[in-house]
Amino acid sequence: MRTKTNKYLRQEMTAWFMSAPALIILLLFMIVPLLMSVYFSFTNRMLIMPPHLSTKFLGLENYRRILEQNDFFIALMNTLKFALVVVPVQTTLALLLALLINSKLRFIYFFRTVFFSPVVITMVVVSIIWSLLLAPGPEGFINSFLSHITFGAFEPKAWLFDKHSSLYAIMMFSIWQGVGFQMIIFLAGLQYISKDLYEASGLDGASKIQQFFYVTLPQLRNTSVFIMITTTIFAFKLFTQVLVLTNGGPQDSTLTLVYLLYSEGFTKMKIGYSSAIGVLFFLIVLLISIVQMKLTKVNREG
């Protein structure tokens, strides 16, 4: 009995001792700012308080105004649109690429490195390169290329300058930049699948395609869920591309939540208002995550 209590105590002590460093950091640099943020969201706090203004409690005023104005709704819709396209497309493409490079062909290491390489280029540089390639008019490389391979049938687009295509253009090169990472994770997942499963199904006379659907996909379940969740989180943080290239335009077509937060907080220095956006943003992502987790759980049980 005594040893059991002792053992438990020892465990409890060790647990606290080992949790302490991370816990302290999280408390100090995440929880405290989070609480500050919530507090600011109820006030008129500015980045630097002007001499003629004191911090006042505004109640729900900031929230009321956010909901009253279109900006937040537009930014939310754009962000959702971005996530709804990017998450499935990027995941599927990553899987396809992983299948392609999961082989023992010659030079395969070389291909892997090249497919992965955009991941290590910082987003600022990626945005710049693509904005040059996506230049509007017939001089733009992408435009002239598409027009060449369609024998002139393709009408040059303004890409980032057109409110109908700007967000899609950003989606395209965001996927280009990020897909290599998911590809590697899928590849790892593929290599983990036991060879026996394929051999067994091969003996049963399953075709390659059947093997893919009845062996590979089910075996990649957890990997896929993991990739979808992380891609969703990344998709919701869409910011750098917008900051570097479009500043939310044209006509708010690329206004995203994080960009809105940035422009209200830094350009206009309205910390109170931007904190309120942040809080709403957090609640929405929380809701989506809960739904996502519930869905995957239901699936698993079913």
């Binding site: 405290v32 989070l34 500050m36 980045l47 919701f236 994080v258 904190s275 942040g278 943003f281």
Partner: peptide, 8 residues
């Protein structure tokens, strides 16, 4: 999202 916490 880390960005939302940068100012506090």
């Amino acid at each position: 999202p880390g960005e939302t916490l940068s100012i506090p």
